[in-house]
Amino acid sequence: MSYWDVAPEHWGLIWDNLDYFLWGAAKFTDQFPYVENLGGLAASIVLAVLGILGAFWLGLGAGLMRISRNRFAKYTSIVYIEAIRGTPLLMLIFWFFFLAPILMGQTLPAFHSTLIAFIVFTSAYIGEIVRAGVNALPRGQMEAARGSGLSHVQAMRYVILPQALRNMIPSFVNQFVSLTKDTSLAYIIGVNELMRTAVQVDNRETKISFEIYITIAILYFVVCYVLTSYSRRLEKKLSRYQARDR
């Protein structure tokens, strides 16, 4: 029996489960998150968006500490960034999952502890992006801002960061793409996101693994590829307005 004989039945099963892949068994409620049992691709995207929002602020702090002249701040942030960049994300996820009971005496829900792990992990990479972005601006910008009477903090706040952050947007989008891919790791400690819905359906149907993982890969690919091409276009557009050394 060739594959083509069973293909219609298998892809039919995929079609039946597609809504579960997309948003899990989500139901609307009238209490705060307004939705419960969110799963599938929607949960992955929620994890990634919350993760990048948290990581932006933490990473901005780490990056600014990395370029500051205060030795203590600088070396703290170097250790933080290098330690986290040298560690697999899966290790961090497990680490925060088992750290919570020690600190608080009770386990955090898997969703929250993976979210913390994602924020901490991504912030190290964002810290490097921030450092590179600030260092890429010509020195004259800082000197001119200081020369016109702004303090160091003011110069950072009103002159350097607005330019640097705008140039960093493509890198942030790339980081978001990579975080979206990494949300699949949350499956391992049991967060109900896209990868886990795939494994659940795979365990129930048992014979359509090939089709399931192709479908999941395509779902991730669509999200990530759209964002990647957007970031490429953005990069081209932004590079025209960048301040340069002359």
Binding site: Y3, K181, S184, L185, F210, Y213, I214, Y225
Partner: peptide, 20 residues
């Protein structure tokens, strides 16, 4: 394709799916 899909999905694909 391979840069924009998660590694975990690819691992599961090669282990469970590729046999077909």
């Amino acid at each position: 394709f391979f840069r924009n899909t998660p590694l975990l999905v690819q691992i599961f694909f090669w282990y469970f799916g590729a046999g077909v």
